[in-house]
Design a protein around this nucleic acid. Structure first.
Length: 614
RNA sequence: GCCACCUUAGCUCAGCUGGCUAGAGCGCCGCUUUCGUAAAGCGGAGGUCUGGAGUUCGAAUCUCCAAGGUGGCUCCA
């Protein structure tokens, strides 16, 4: 961390205390939880019992905060023996602080199991035996806190309270729910302004909004939440994305398979998913048999059945099956969100069955596809190597894990990936590489993934006959390049602000007729027929509107190429294409023969270029 | 599921502290116009104000319940 980061951290943290001070003055009975620094700001968890804070109270609280800031009182640090601190918490009616202190005393840490490090969690860093704990005092407000803080309440930058949200004490559903007050904080008003502008831009690019404006997908209350319906325009993009993924995979040794969308529950009992994720499966009832069916939430057990359908030789390995299909998961209602989280999920899924010593080649193969794919999307990514830690609950031989993790890291190194190792993030069945993609607004999303699985081959008793004639156990690799197509689309719509590259644009060329005379519309129809033969998505707008208005309509739909068709074009058989500004290289529009124009665009679509040569 | 907020025409929104047949722009339909690179003109249709109950002489407006949505929390094979 740089000094500047330290300063920003201290400032944000101090603002959390200042907000708490203001809240306590307004609601003296408030009970405090934790108030850490988060990305772009801070929050504080509070419990007001029956009373609730709403966003309407923000003016009041902000005014209170400004008062504290203007008073410019120092943040004073002092220490207390832990037992005295516990007594303080009890006496001042702060049961949450008391609980934290008791944990601190007992465990030397406040980090509850399954809980990320919090502000207080780091208090005890490197001190297993806690004797003293530190407090910070600003004016009449005292808080248990590791710090650091700025010197005085006047030394904070620009802030703005953003929202109030519910949050369970220590992130556990069984615990009481507190209110979390979020604030943004930056060193200067200018940076705050910039951040608010970014949020504004993000709102404009929101895929739910653009999905409607660009006519890509809809929801229907009668169909159900989390079940998007794709319009013709949206379906063009879906198909193009999946087609791209399949093309990459086919070129890299994957074979397409197909499996039905329902299966007997027994399959998932065997795979172990029923025990772990049973409540997320949609149940399907047969009226003919007594079998219990489920909608498939994933494909691995199905692909396993294909692999297991006959004995396999080492000569066949690796076996690579791909299937881009819809999977169904009954997500909780509060989790659904536009296309980012749906209940019918299309995944460009694939499974590799291979020998242990083939892992390196297979991981490399898949990672190369990921690199190819995201360079076409013009998106940067980094790899998160999710490895095991020392805790229990990982299945399989630790020595094999160790070796596999080493192999995976070697692959990442060899390919020159920007990667980080994250211990403790592995799935229980194996280590994995998650790809974090950065969008145009600098936000990170998990898209592609590549996961090793030692467990399912075991559970299903998969084998192959090795060179020595003996049965061996293969390992499995799960992979997705796009991940969920719906979520990828959400990310990509926001990344491009709906300005899709030529190969993905639902409508690649739009012809605008100057008038509705036979000669004009006939000529446009002639061009449309040629375009169709070239596989182009071209439409003709010969509605009875002004040329200006029709151009505007095409602009709003973000069509990459527009051409006006009138007398001039009919006689010269040339057009002056209007090119969307993110695609264009030279800004002097120039005339081009219609045939050449169409062929060029068709070629650009085929080669998936992001800039035009026109 | 929990907390906060939101829900008025296909879309975006107005409708002040409760008061005549609920408005606008865009879109849609019709007519006029036959037009040259981001909005031609005129006319029309379209709303049981998300649903239900209540308070009131009177409810889009206030209260309660429900549904859907948004932002979080939680979870994520």
């Amino acid at each position: 961390m740089s000094d500047q980061d330290d300063q920003l951290y201290a400032m944000r943290h101090s603002l959390a205390h200042i907000m708490a001070t203001a809240v306590q003055r307004l609601w003296p009975e408030v009970k405090f939880g934790v108030g850490p620094v988060v990305q772009d700001g801070f929050y504080y968890d509070i419990d007001l019992g029956e009373a609730k804070i709403s966003e309407e109270d923000f003016d009041k609280i902000e005014a209170g905060m400004r008062q504290v800031i203007e008073s410019d009182v120092p943040f004073e640090r002092f220490e207390q023996p832990i037992d005295e601190a516990i007594a303080w918490a009890r006496d001042s009616g702060q049961p949450y602080k008391e609980e934290l202190l008791n944990d601190l005393k007992r465990d030397g840490t406040t980090v509850a199991k399954d809980l990320d490090a919090t502000e207080l969690g780091t208090i005890a860093e490197g001190q297993a035996h806690v004797e003293n704990v530190s407090f910070y005092k600003n004016g009449d407000f005292v808080d248990l806190c590791r710090g650091p803080h700025v010197e005085s309440t006047g030394k904070v930058g620009a802030f703005k309270l953003m929202r109030v949200a519910g949050a369970y004490w220590r992130g556990n559903e069984q615990n009481p729910q507190m209110q979390r007050l979020y604030g943004l904080a930056f060193a200067t008003p200018k940076e705050l302004r910039q951040h608010l502008d970014m949020l504004e831009e993000a709102k404009k690019r929101d895929h739910r909004r653009l999905g409607q404006e660009l006519d890509l997908f809809v929801f229907s209350e009668m169909v159900g939440s989390g079940l998007p319906l794709f319009t013709p325009r949206g379906t063009v993009i879906r198909d193009a994305l999946l087609g791209f993924s399949e093309e990459l995979q086919r070129n890299n040794g994957f074979e397409k398979v197909f499996t039905p969308h329902i299966t007997k529950q027994a399959l998932y009992e065997r795979s172990g998913h029923w025990a772990k994720f049973g409540d997320e499966l949609f149940l399907v009832k047969s009226q003919e048999t007594s079998d219990q069916f489920v909608l498939k939430p994933m494909n691995c057990p199905h692909h396993i059945q294909i692999y297991a359908s006959r004995p396999r030789s080492y000569r066949e390995l690796p076996v690579r099956y791909m299937e881009s299909t819809v999977q169904y998961r009954d997500e909780k209602k509060g989790e659904l969100n536009g296309l980012s989280r749906v209940r019918a999920i299309s995944i460009d899924d694939a499974h590799v069955f291979c020998a242990l010593e083939q892992i390196e080649a297979e991981f490399t193969n898949i990672m190369n596809m990921i690199k190819d794919m995201y360079s076409v999307f013009d998106m940067k990514f980094r790899a998160r190597l999710s490895f095991r830690d020392d805790s229990e609950g990982y299945l399989g031989d630790p020595a094999v894990w160790e070796q596999a993790q080493q192999t995976i890291e070697d692959v990442a190194k060899k390919l020159g990936l920007n990667y980080t190792v994250v211990p403790g993030e592995a799935a229980f069945y194996g280590p994995k590489i998650d790809i974090m993609v950065t969008d145009a607004l600098g936000r990170e999303w998990q898209c592609a993934t590549e996961q090793l699985d030692f467990v399912q081959p075991e559970r299903f008793g998969l084998t192959y006959i090795d060179t020595d004639g003996k049965e061996k156990r293969p390992v499995m690799i799960h992979k997705a390049l796009l991940g969920s197509v719906e979520r990828f689309l959400a990310v990509y719509i926001e990344h491009t602000a709906g300005r899709f590259p030529i190969w993905l644009a639902p409508e690649q060329v739009r012809l605008i007729t100057v008038n509705q005379e036979e000669a004009t519309t006939g000529f446009a129809a002639e061009i449309a027929a040629q375009a169709k033969e070239l596989g182009l998505r071209l439409t003709v707008d010969n509605s009875n509107e002004s040329v200006g208005k029709k151009i505007r309509a095409a602009e709003l739909l973000k069509v990459p190429y527009t051409a006006v068709i009138g007398e001039k074009e009919i006689s010269s058989r040339e057009v002056v294409p209007r090119i969307r500004k993110d695609v264009v290289v030279q800004d002097e529009p120039r005339a081009i023969g219609i045939e050449e124009f169409l062929k060029t665009v068709a070629n650009e679509a085929k080669t998936r270029v992001t800039k035009t040569s026109l």
